[in-house]
Simulated scan of single mutants.
Amino acid sequence: MQRIRVLVVDDHRIFAESLAAALAAEQDVEVMAAGSGPVALRCLERAAAEGRRFDVLLIDADLSGALTAEAGGAGDGAPPLVVRLRGLHPELRTVVLAERDEPRLAAVALQAGASGWVAKDCSLSRLLQVIRGVLREETHLPPALLTGVLRELTASRKHRSESERLVASLTPREHEVLRCMVAGLGRKAVAERLFLSPHTVRTHMQNVLGKLGVHSTLAAVALARRAGIGPVDLEQAAV
């Protein structure tokens, strides 16, 4: 009998341990609980090093940084935890555990790579059905969420298309400056990296804001992220 290896990530210790115990009662399920993102990463890395990969991640929607960017250095946010975990372990299937049904967050979860969204108070049989379903490449959402999630995904696609159109209007140099802005670099740092004068960088930044139709660096960065523009590689030497 092939066993399903499940990792529960929730900072509510009693809930995580109770859920883990309930799942472990199933003959074909092996489960471990982690109370934070860093602990989950260590569990996954240790399991991979030992040749015992996890199959399914059950993660609390309200866990800090699970579905939204975490505050990082240099004014830039680290990617959501679900994105990082899926990037490091693409074979892992993710199911989000939620206190309440929120179409917007559920849509964000799907876009981040999650395969399912279930209520924390759902029955054990329902949770097992979802776990086994996502391993068959199925996507599981509560029926009551479907309309709202589809609406959110449609709106997100429209916003992304518009953002991509605006970013495409930038010159190559303005695009470089925008990526530096996404990385959280200030005018002086951008000037040093691109071997430009601060005055020239200021002009480029103003042009970027104007072409994107925004009035602040934060708004420009948000639009760039919607368009799929990542930060400039700070480890890479400027050319």
Rank of each mutant, 00 (worst) to 15 (best):
E30L: 13
R104L: 14
V6N: 02
A48G: 09
V130M: 03
L153M: 11
H140D: 08
G37K: 05
G228T: 10
V149D: 04
A34G: 01
V130C: 01
R226Y: 08
L146Y: 03
L150I: 11
E45D: 15
R157T: 14
A144F: 04
A107S: 13
H89F: 09
C180A: 07
Q27S: 12
L209N: 06
A98D: 04
V118P: 05
G184W: 05
R46F: 12
A109D: 02
L41E: 15
A16T: 06
L63T: 06
T217N: 09
H12Q: 05
L23P: 06
E30S: 12
V232D: 06
G75F: 11
Q236H: 08
G186N: 12
G133F: 09
T171V: 10
A49G: 07
K211H: 11
E174V: 10
L170F: 05
T147S: 13
D60A: 07
P90H: 09
E26Q: 15
P142F: 11
L110Y: 09
A112S: 10
S123W: 05
L128K: 13
V214Q: 00
A78Y: 11
T68L: 09
R193N: 05
G116L: 01
L88W: 15
D233I: 07
R126N: 00
V177N: 07
T217Q: 10
C122Q: 06
V130E: 00
G77Q: 15
E152S: 08
H199A: 15
G228P: 04
V190W: 05
E102G: 14
S36K: 04
V182W: 03
L128S: 10
Q111W: 00
R100M: 04
R13W: 01
F195N: 14
A114N: 02
A114H: 02
V29P: 00
Q206P: 01
